[in-house]
Amino acid sequence: MTQPSACAFVPERAESSVYTRGEAIVKRPEEPKPRSDEWTLCLLRVRDTQDQAAFVQLFNHFAPRIKSYLMKGGGSDTLAEEATQEALATVWQKASLFSPVQASASTWIFTIARNKNIDAIRKQKRPEPEELDWIGDKEDDASVALETSQEESGLRLAVSKLPQAQRTLIERAFYGEMSHSEIAAETQIPLGTIKSRIRLALERIRHDLAREK
């Protein structure tokens, strides 16, 4: 389903600022890069202005995917439908906690859908790590969102270049079709290489944040 992308306001080619917190902003000519993703911008609008039209766009894009995901997790059509609605309601309710430094919209919404899968479909509990105190500077969020979505699209590119068998393993893991011991026994999942790409990027962003503190 393609929605008109009212949220995509980042131009394809423009002079971008290299983001270095606490120091002078360095300008450099833009290389062709992916756009900041429209779903993250929609989510920022929901967070900052309770924009219902932006929420409807998120709903139309994510709800049908979350419903499939929850049915793969073992939910009946009725249960998955109800849990999908609850997950999307949580997107609105928790939007104030969304930080584009940590994740793109699809990653953040994935974690909400996953937690819904655990508590509503599998009836289990999930301990969550301690929240980090992000120093909120909402004016910077659009540029930070661009950086995060560029990192994530690099990650997606890396995943899409994997051999089919490895991609299938990653999907099966996320669809809940592999136990921990099955994952552990499966040496084909090339997590190290994929992780290191995004790990470095995230650590750099965090380092910048810590310096400003």
Binding site: M1, F62, A63, P64, R65, I66, K67, S68, Y69, M71, K72, D77, A80, E81, T84, Q85, Q102, A103, S104, S106, T107, W108, I109, F110, T111, A113, R114, P129, L132, E151, E152, L155, R156, V159, I170, E171, F174, Y175, L191, I194, K195, R197, I198, R199, L202, E203, R206
Partner: peptide, 24 residues
Amino acid sequence: RSALDGLEAMGGAVLEQTETTALS
């Protein structure tokens, strides 16, 4: 934590390319 963030981003990518199921 960074490694987990990276893996959750993979989860986000998997969700993005999940087929759709119509809602009521």
